[in-house]
């Protein structure tokens, strides 16, 4: 079994909401990365939960930067460390908004340039920092403060955008599987070049479920096949254990949808569209893994 270090780099004094799964992820990510790491954080919940100057909940250097600028700032850090002949890890920890919306240009540029860094997007499927407005990553039918009637369009497929850049390593993860996340961060950091991890990070106030259900919600996302855990190393795709089982025998999608207030008002037609979309995603990934593209 992989030993998780006892050292804590995200201390127990964050101002995250109860049941915040993205801060749970950050704890495991920093444990995997260790102290020779700089975390780059654009505007998002993570810029808030680290605490207020002069206090901080982080015990590694954190560089907070403007909303659109995380990947570019990380480029500068990464190249500067190369100039200084230092091996410090540069990790971006950005929300879905800072990734799929305003930050996508900088992300694309940094990946195309082959920047040596790890970009982690924690996806709570909305703009948490500003009070849960829709993002490009908000799924079909989800209510947010700017889609009070449910989002009429589907979730932007970030992973296929990143895949188009052919990074040496990319993976999905979910906060309900922290050991899987830990291992993926370790593996990513052992590879040179631009690496990417996309974490589904359930968010109690945003998704409208009670805090103690946060792990269950992540598990349901995976078990229903809504979220597929995989890794793509140098172009070779592996679907990970929990998703393999889920694909063989998926839990009913309703189990995932029903538990979340944001999906109140989803029509049967929408549910059917979600199911078809989910199935298409699974089929595409399975075929890729089997080598039938």
């Amino acid at each position: 079994m992989t030993a998780i270090p006892k050292e804590e780099y995200l201390l127990k004094c964050t101002s995250a909401c109860a049941g915040c799964s993205s801060s749970l992820c950050l704890r495991y990510i920093t444990k995997a990365a260790g102290p020779d790491t700089v975390l780059v954080v654009p505007a998002c919940c993570t810029s808030v939960i680290q605490g207020m100057y002069p206090n901080t909940a982080m015990d590694i250097p954190v560089y907070n930067i403007a909303f659109a600028a995380a990947a570019a700032c990380a480029s500068g850090l990464s190249n500067a460390f190369r100039a200084l002949r230092r091996e410090t890890n540069v990790i971006v920890y950005a929300g879905d908004g800072g990734t799929v919306d305003i930050g996508i240009q900088a992300l694309s540029g940094a990946f195309e340039r082959g920047t040596d860094f790890l970009y982690i997007c924690y996806d709570n499927e909305a703009y948490g920092n500003t009070g849960m407005q829709r993002s490009g990553a908000t799924p079909l039918g989800a209510r947010t403060t700017t889609t009070p009637g449910g989002k009429p369009t589907t979730k932007k497929d970030l992973d296929r955008i990143v895949e188009a850049h052919d990074p040496p390593y990319m993976a999905t993860a979910c906060s309900a599987y922290p050991l899987d996340l830990f291992k993926k961060v370790k593996k990513a950091l052992s590879i040179r070049g631009p690496k990417f991890i996309h974490i589904l990070a359930p968010c109690p106030p945003g998704w409208r479920y009670s805090a103690e259900k946060t792990i269950e919600m992540g598990k349901l996302a995976v078990k229903t096949g809504t979220w597929v855990l995989y890794e793509r190393e140098y172009g070779n795709l592996t679907i990970n254990g929990p998703s393999k089982a889920a694909i063989r025998k998926p839990a009913p999608l309703e189990d995932y949808i029903k538990g979340q207030g944001r999906f109140k008002g989803v029509t049967p037609a929408m549910l059917e569209q979600m199911r078809q979309q989910m199935q298409a995603n699974i089929t595409r990934l399975v075929r890729e893994e089997e080598g039938i593209c």
């Binding site: 570019a72 700032c73 500068g76 850090l77 500067a80 200084l84 240009q105 900088a106 340039r113």
Partner: peptide, 23 residues
């Protein structure tokens, strides 16, 4: 190190990151 960024917003952001690293 010459970083051929994709925009000026990123040019300044990259300079910020690099300068913060001490170069």
């Amino acid at each position: 190190e010459y970083i051929p960024v994709e925009s000026e917003h990123s040019a300044m952001a990259a300079c910020i990151g690099a300068s913060a690293a001490g170069v």
